[in-house]
């Protein structure tokens, strides 16, 4: 079965993000990075949907959603 890339969409609300870097630090796959003191998605295809970033974001700024097939 082919592995379908990018099964999850990561939504970052830049207005709410305060740049604490929790999401980046907890992401096990280096999907996220910081740019201008805000979180950005750099490797969206690597996301495994563990939702640790969403769990630790104190600012309600990041959401991981499963893509509809």
């Amino acid at each position: 079965m082919p592995v379908t890339a990018k099964k999850y969409t990561i939504k970052i609300n830049r207005e709410l993000c305060k740049g604490c870097q929790f999401c980046m630090a907890f992401c096990p796959e280096n999907v996220l990075a910081m740019k201008k003191a805000k979180a950005v998605v750099i490797n969206p295809e690597k996301c495994t949907g563990c939702q640790l970033c969403e769990l630790y974001c104190p600012d309600f700024a990041i959401e991981v959603e499963k893509k509809n097939e």
Binding site: K18, C20, L55, Y56, C57, P58, D59, F60
Partner: peptide
């Protein structure tokens, strides 16, 4: 503040 834990507890 940036990095405050209150948001984690609220969630």
């Amino acid at each position: 503040c940036t990095g405050c834990g209150c948001g984690i507890i609220l969630k």
